[in-house]
Design a binder for these strands. Structure first.
Length: 509
RNA sequence: GGCAGGGUAGCUCAGCCCGGUAGAGCAAGAGAUUCAUAAGCUCUUGGCCGUGGGUUCAAAUCCCACCCCUGCUACCA
């Protein structure tokens, strides 16, 4: 039986169109999903949109629309952007889907039946953008009136009867779970933060709202709707069939990893597992919180007007270049800076010069010196053996880095091979060998064709279009493109006709 | 205020656990070459390793104090 892999992005709140931050998470998950598919895993990649809550209701009203229409409009932008970025998800979930709504109510009832939900009266300062109450612990006197400690925006005083979830009950269980699963939250620094915050104590949280009605009603009390975060988190279950489609659900749950940005760590690393504990379901295996992008070292925000939209850069650089840049530029987990000069450098140096030009020079030489056919390796020199060793070592390192989502390091390893190949050409000087006619030229050209093939396999998850073009240029078929069977050196058949096309990455500017 | 992480070449960082006369990539400069997207290859420049003490034959690396930055968190009121 094939092993499974289930990866998710957060479902994005439809108050804004997709930008570089959401694209980042979505691309990272796509790369991981494509990698796992390549490795033969039965893979499920879930993304989607979060469409309920007061914030959406207000935004819709402000434009004279009903919230569902408003959401539809934004959602279409998500579809388009993800298509433009070549994101291959298995399912796109919307919290307005009837199936999802049912799942939320089912989960809610499970937790209620377990005695973890009670009715209480709550009065306090509420942050609408964050969709949560600011606790007394968190708020300084100025903070109460001054704004939300998380997002700094104004809070409003609310008093209502709500239903509460006994989060406090799960403090010890949660700590225990973390101790037994040291890699549950990554990077480690985030794990430590979560751990110490839980140690300080967990308060019960209000998980229903009565002051507006854009949401999913409680099964037991139609006057209240379920808190958006409870609603949203449940997508990870409903997206794989919970509760009705047991076959799919049992196959894929628990999720192997929830990819998130660091700002929503608490909801995912604490509230979500505790909800699942209460419902008698397994928690996800890993929460990976990545960092934030700045723009020219400046914090990105709507008010500053420096938000970057994927379309802005795709037109100029191409999808694969953007995908590459985002994952290569910074170690996954850390913050990073997005800037045009940085993007230009990566694109022109690494993609155009080192990779694109490598392929171009190899194909040209095969064309010129061997009638566009991959020659038969003559075994005159020992470099084939050396390349074999190099790629064996690359295979190990690459997969190790991919397993721990260290995309930048995985790419760095692939680039070591690319640089070696460029150097190999300069060292062996095929243009000289072509005059000598010793047969050594065949060895070199064969090795180069094979190197390019292997590189394209490794790049496939990151740059699917590029990998596909390389495959066509080399004239090879799909069977040589898989992991691990396609990774051994020496598979490309002599006589294969190459098709030199145009430059893979035209230089920008 | 507490806890955690960090301050090393112009920039981004590795080295610090297991002390022994500073490393990589990018940027900058030079050279040989021509298969190639004026690409690639080779070489060079560049650092009192946050500050002040201490331990040691020897400290970026260990110890103490202080300064600055980042994250989590608390509070004086």
């Amino acid at each position: 039986m094939r092993p499974k892999y289930y990866i998710t992005t957060p479902i994005y709140y439809v108050n804004a169109q997709p930008h570089i931050g959401t694209a980042y998470t979505t691309i990272a998950a796509d790369v991981m999903a494509r990698y796992k598919r390549l490795c033969g895993y039965e893979t499920f990649y879930l993304t989607g949109t979060d469409e309920h809550g007061q914030k959406i209701l207000r935004a819709a009203n402000a434009e004279g629309m009903n919230p569902k229409e408003y959401a539809d409009r934004i959602v279409s932008q998500y579809y388009k952007t993800w298509a433009d970025l070549n994101i291959k998800y298995d399912y796109f979930i919307r919290t307005t889907d009837p199936k999802h709504q049912k799942a939320v109510q089912t989960l809610f009832s499970k937790i209620a039946n377990n005695g973890d939900i009670y009715k209480g009266k709550y009065s306090g300062w509420y942050c609408t953008p964050c969709e949560r109450y600011v606790s007394v612990k968190e708020s300084s006197p100025e903070g109460l009136r001054g704004g939300c400690p998380v997002c700094q925006r104004p809070t409003e005083f609310l008093e209502e009867e709500n239903y509460f979830f006994r989060l406090s009950k799960y403090r010890d269980k949660m700590l225990d779970y973390l101790k037994k699963n040291g890699d549950f939250v990554e990077p480690v620094s985030r794990y430590n933060e979560v751990f110490s915050k839980i140690e300080m104590g967990l308060d019960d949280i209000s998980i229903s709202r009565a002051s507006f009605d854009w949401g999913i009603p409680l099964p037991s009390d139609q006057k209240q709707i379920i808190w958006v975060w409870f609603d949203a988190l449940t997508n990870y279950l409903s997206g794989v069939g919970y509760p009705e489609d047991e076959g799919i659900f049992k196959k894929f749950w628990p999720a192997d990893v929830h990819l998130i940005a660091k700002d929503i760590l608490w909801f995912h690393a604490v509230i979500w597992p505790c909800m699942l504990f209460s419902a008698g379901l397994e928690p996800p295996l890993k929460i990976f919180a990545h960092g934030w992008w700045t723009m020219n070292a400046d914090k990105i925000s709507k008010s500053k007007g420096n938000v970057i939209y994927p379309a802005d850069v795709i037109d100029r650089f191409g999808v694969d270049s953007i995908r590459y840049f985002l994952l290569r530029e910074i170690p996954f987990g850390q913050d990073g800076d997005f800037s045009l000069p940085a993007l230009l450098r990566r694109h022109n140096n690494e993609l155009a010069n080192e990779l694109g030009n490598l392929i171009m020079r190899c194909l040209t030489m095969i064309e010129k010196y061997n009638g566009s056919k991959v020659p038969k390796s003559e075994g005159i020199d020992s470099s084939k053996e050396l390349w074999n060793e190099l790629f064996t070592s690359l295979e190990q390192k690459f997969s190790a880095y991919m397993e721990c989502l260290q995309f930048s390091l995985a790419l760095e390893k692939v680039w070591e091979a690319i640089k070696m190949a460029n150097k190999y050409i300069d060292d062996t000087k095929p243009w000289v060998l072509a005059k000598e006619k010793t047969g050594r030229l065949s060895d070199v050209l064969y090795n180069l064709a094979e190197i390019i093939r292997l590189v394209s396999v490794y790049l496939m998850p990151f740059m699917p279009n590029t990998a596909e073009i390389i495959r066509q240029q080399l004239g090879i078929d799909d069977e040589m493109i898989s992991i691990p069977s396609g990774l051994s050196f020496g598979q490309i058949r002599p006589g294969t006709k190459v098709n030199k096309g145009s430059a893979l990455f035209p230089k920008v500017e």
